[in-house]
Amino acid sequence: MSRVNVVKEFIIENFLFGEGESLDLETDFFDKGIIDSTGVIELVDFLEKSFAISVDDEELIPQNLSSLQKIDVFLNKKLAQKVA
């Protein structure tokens, strides 16, 4: 399963309780109310554990976390840094 699909599955399971039809790559989690303030903590915790990364304080911004696409770009960057 691709990385973005792993994240998508987590979002569908935990925040949409199985209803994923309306979720596409650009869907904004915050605008659409998919993830609330406590949900962000769950999401970051999931990303750190699943991809063995550590998210820095300054990276915890909507530009990195507010959609599947943004998370994908962010993960690519983080994992590339890790390899390097």
């Binding site: 915050f30 609330d36 303030s37 903590i41 970051v44 304080d57 915890l60 911004i61 909507p62």
Partner: peptide
């Protein structure tokens, strides 16, 4: 503190 910016977005 790490989540400030994201929370502010809400």
């Amino acid at each position: 503190d790490r989540l400030n910016q994201t929370l502010i977005a809400f």
